[in-house]
């Protein structure tokens, strides 16, 4: 089964576009090897997209303020804390995984997150910053390497 690659973000809001731009680039390059999706959704509304996949890669922007913009990070989903939020718009991956587990939904067992540190300036129509734009090519390469690693490893081993 093909893995899911999902680029998250908003291509109208400065650096938040990076996940979307990566997905667009990957769509052209890895169409036969993965289902590539771009989405502006977040929280619980993302649940539907993951259902039915065994493996998934999430590409997103991250703003920690502790690294230079454009830094690429591999995030271990296990280190993300469950979100307690006043709004479901901000439900995070751990909560989605828990909901899926509780309901017995077919959620990917292997989820990787590749994120790009962004500058934190978001405004409609703001262009992507040069440092983050430069991360696009290495970001896409990173995702392709993850896909290649999976291809060497049968799904049963992965999950």
């Amino acid at each position: 089964m093909k893995p899911l690659v999902i680029g998250l973000g908003n291509d109208l809001m400065g650096d938040d576009a990076i996940g979307i731009l990566a997905a667009r680039s990957l769509k052209e390059q890895v169409a036969t090897r993965a289902d590539v999706v771009e989405s502006a959704l977040h929280g619980v509304a993302l649940l539907d997209i993951f259902i039915g996949y065994r493996r998934a890669i999430i590409i997103d922007a991250i703003h920690t303020g502790t690294r230079p913009p454009g830094s690429i990070l591999d995030i271990d989903p296990a280190t993300l804390e469950a979100t307690v939020s006043p709004s479901p718009h901000f439900s995070g991956l751990p909560e989605l995984q828990t909901i899926a587990r509780e309901l017995g939904l077919d959620f990917p067992k292997d989820v990787r997150i590749v994120a790009v540190e962004v500058s934190g300036a978001f405004e409609i129509g703001r262009p992507i910053s040069p440092a983050v734009a430069e991360a696009l090519v290495p970001l896409v390469e990173r995702v392709k390497r993850l896909l290649a690693d999976w291809e060497k490893k049968p799904e049963t081993e992965a999950s």
Partner: peptide
């Protein structure tokens, strides 16, 4: 109390971005 009111109104932060870590601490 603020969260309960929040949830009723559901002030939409969707115009905002949703980048990781995707938390909304109070």
């Amino acid at each position: 109390m603020v969260e309960m009111a929040f949830r009723a109104y559901d002030p939409c932060n969707g115009c905002a971005t949703h980048a990781l870590p995707g938390k909304m601490p109070l």
